[in-house]
Design a binder for these strands. Sequence first.
DNA 1: CAAATTGACTTAAACGTTTAAGTAAGATAC
DNA 2: GTATCTTACTTAAACGTTTAAGTCAATTTG
Lengths: 335, 335
Amino acid sequence: MNNKKRILPAKKATLKDVAKHAGVSTATVSYVLNDSGSVGKTVRDNVLKSVRTLKYKPNRSAQAMRTGRTKTIGLILPDLRNPFFPELAQAIENAAREAGYAVLLIDTQGSNETEKEGIQMLSQYGVEGAIWCPASEQDSFKNFADIIPCVVVDRPMKNYDNVHSDYVMGGQMLAREILKASHTKIGLISGPQDIASARMRREGLLTELTGRAEIIWETAVPYAVGLTPETLSLINKNKVSVIVAGNDLIAIGAIRALNDIGISVPDQVSVTGFDDMPWSTLVSPTLTTIRQPLTGLGQEAVKLLKRRMNEPEAERTVIILDVDIRIRESLSWIT
Amino acid sequence: MNNKKRILPAKKATLKDVAKHAGVSTATVSYVLNDSGSVGKTVRDNVLKSVRTLKYKPNRSAQAMRTGRTKTIGLILPDLRNPFFPELAQAIENAAREAGYAVLLIDTQGSNETEKEGIQMLSQYGVEGAIWCPASEQDSFKNFADIIPCVVVDRPMKNYDNVHSDYVMGGQMLAREILKASHTKIGLISGPQDIASARMRREGLLTELTGRAEIIWETAVPYAVGLTPETLSLINKNKVSVIVAGNDLIAIGAIRALNDIGISVPDQVSVTGFDDMPWSTLVSPTLTTIRQPLTGLGQEAVKLLKRRMNEPEAERTVIILDVDIRIRESLSWIT
DNA sequence: CAAATTGACTTAAACGTTTAAGTAAGATAC
DNA sequence: GTATCTTACTTAAACGTTTAAGTCAATTTG
């Protein structure tokens, strides 16, 4: 059927071709293209015309070779399937492209081993910098930033430039909203306490809550829907009017557990989440939760990386962005 | 506080350095590294030792310049936030890396304009091939594949190598399951009928259903939770025992609409989705839906692209992968 | 035993840019 | 009117690889 002969990619025009076509030297063409050197108006126009008619596009590999600059950055993520990352990656790619950089993507699937390989790979491809969300909190690479300018996103990490959300603030905002809704008896299901961001969420909540409401019980679980048996039994005791969950997945788990024992959310017990995952408006009840400025994080990461690439010797910088609260059905007022 | 002086990235060892260190010519080193030419065992070992001690890694830009091969492919997606893409992107990146290729990511945010720019950009960076999920069905680029070897994923598209799911089969599987559950009165909310995959879903459903069950009403809506007024009024008529939705978002919309008028899902009316988005087990009721082999699609796309890059003149190939049905709560049996 | 082949290496050109250095002509200075 | 400075170019080297072609000794061949 479809045997229309494919046209082989015509080999691309080179600087030399343009020079010949315009009757000048390659240097002149280069000067025109880079606005350097000095070229007369007529010659410049001729060159530009030749560039257009030959559809000349500079060969990045050659430029990279000569200048040492690849106009490329790396992006290392643990797992794109985690709904946190797609929006971040999108923002980073867009901001980078805007700034004239292409993005080499590496998804490590959470493996520290792959992370190291990935970093090596990026270095070999000559990326000028990298944005990295480490798979775990300890620096699997001794100091990546010694090899390539690098900013770490989402996780606070020593010795690196950092961009992340204000998790403490998120905890505080939840606390305030909970108090405003007149809740006084609280159950707390934190995320893993060996993760800094989970600790900070908890810390923010507690500092704002102490003296004004009572933590009836507390537990910590992995970021997942399935809760631990202890947690379930705590939920079953049901002495609280609101359950604060470490993130949206945990919140869903809590809602399910409550429903399973015939307790309605939010009529009898409220639940709050954290992260505002894309589906948190799709579940029932919709989740009251904290929204991280994912796009902002990405943009700031790129900005910071550009700075770092320009001044490799600069002081370490940490950028912390404000979060938002999204008030939805799962948190109700006590009347 | 942290004013530990950053160590500037030591400039990398070059082939010449290795050659000098090993006391041979650069050609010999290159031959050793590429297993070409002929080199004696002792010399080879010496060279390898020098490579190790100098931590030499070949400079990809230079290799690219000399050989014309960048060992890089492009990945052009319309929108990473669409939950369909992260898993696909992950699979593609992993498979590509496995095959020795780095992946340049471009997220066009659905803009045809950006898509064109992106393709130009990839061509400039010298990618050896690209995997493309077009933002719209008409080829915004006349024929991308004339510029770069290219395979189109997810959407059937003429003149390109294709990899996508068997949407017809998905429709059929749903139909069979619905019949098995003894439903005979069906409401159909298709996705946009100008999209081939939506048409195919519908087609598969109908071919399998005709004569065995009745389509009481039918409508088509965009892939979103918010349904059109006509659709809502059709739902309100409630003459059906099951509503087949064009994808999971539409299914959620239908469930909400039903709940709003006091109809319980799946007790009174069943609902099916399509796509098995990551949250389809998180909603209540959990969705009966069709799972696309996202990882498989990515892997096949990379495989196919490798083939295409090796034989640019080969016939167009279309690969269609089987889908799975995920039977969950939202579809109930009529007893 | 001379001729031809093989094996192990080196030399040097090439890939497509950028850019320092050179050149020649015209303008400006004194 | 010569000397100096600009302007507008060109020449050629360099970036780090790969690879065709060359060299030379050791081995095989008839």
